[in-house]
Design a protein around this nucleic acid. Structure first.
Length: 267
DNA sequence: ATGGTCGCTTGGCGA
């Protein structure tokens, strides 16, 4: 089973790119973030025609929004609000796997956190930290029955030194500050979650999933960050067979600033 | 230290 996560940055604008992702990777499940469209105007038919008739969507006007697209039926679809806001940052669903049984998928779009990494002067950074704390606390209460879980999304944090182009130069840049990374590690430990991509790609290797739009040519300096993640519960660790980052997608026509990240599980 | 570019919308916000 292939599961892909991708911050698409407007699903309507990038339908041709989504088709290309399908042709290139052929995922069984695609989790999207920043669809930037209200649920009612989501392009259900176009996406069903791409081979994904089962769709779970939580969208709002202009900002955020998440969706799960699937070749297999989705059951127990739900959304959750965090920090008292209805801002469409979390959707989940269950797929029934032949031998494994139910597989629970959680798709997140974590707040980016603004520019200044200080919650006292930057409310957005406070929101980001609170969001992570709330998810960690909720995580601890998840039933033990759902042992097979996957958590994906644009987490907006690059936790490892090799998840950024320069660990030294990004220490005080939102997405790579110690306080965020600690909050993320706390959430990860609450699972317990395994960073599935890093199970496949060694920690020594630099890997990125995002390159800023604010650069004339993103390939020149390769100043990227790994902001998009796929985690699995401990029970699924021995099912991991492959991980892939579709770097080429950053050079496609009208690219998103994020590229698809894919995990293959033997289930 | 600053500004750079996108997308959703048409003035400005969020990333």
């Amino acid at each position: 089973m292939k599961i892909t996560t991708w911050n698409i940055n407007s699903v309507r604008l990038r339908l041709p790119s989504l088709q290309r992702v399908v042709e290139t990777i052929s995922p069984d499940i695609i989790c999207l973030q920043e669809i930037k469209v209200v649920t009612e105007l989501f392009p259900y038919k176009d996406i069903a025609a791409l081979g994904y008739p089962h769709q779970a969507v939580s969208g709002m006007k202009g900002y955020n929004g998440v969706a799960i697209l699937s070749r297999l039926p989705l059951t127990e679809i739900g959304t959750k609000n965090w920090c008292g806001r209805e801002d469409c940052r979390h959707i989940f669903a269950t797929v029934e796997c032949r031998d494994l049984g139910p597989l629970e998928i959680h798709n997140f779009y974590v707040p980016a956190g603004g520019d200044i990494p200080d919650p006292k002067v930057n409310e957005k950074f406070g929101h980001k930290l609170k969001f992570l704390d709330e998810v960690a606390a909720w995580q601890k209460n998840l039933g033990e029955g759902g042992d097979n879980r996957v958590l994906v999304g644009d987490i907006n944090i690059a936790p490892l030194e090799t998840d950024v182009w320069s660990h030294k130069q990004l220490q005080k840049v939102v997405s790579h500050t110690p306080v965020e990374i600690m909050a993320l590690n706390k959430l990860q430990a609450a699972g317990p979650w395994v960073d599935a991509i890093r199970e496949v790609i060694p920690t020594e290797e630099l890997i990125f999933s995002w390159w800023s739009y604010r650069s004339k040519d993103w390939t020149v300096n390769n100043r990227g960050r790994r902001l998009d993640h796929i985690w699995v519960t401990e029970a699924l660790r021995n099912k991991i067979v492959d991980a892939d980052i579709l770097r080429d997608a950053r050079s496609w026509e009208k690219p998103s600033d994020h590229v698809p990240v894919t995990l293959t599980l033997k289930i």
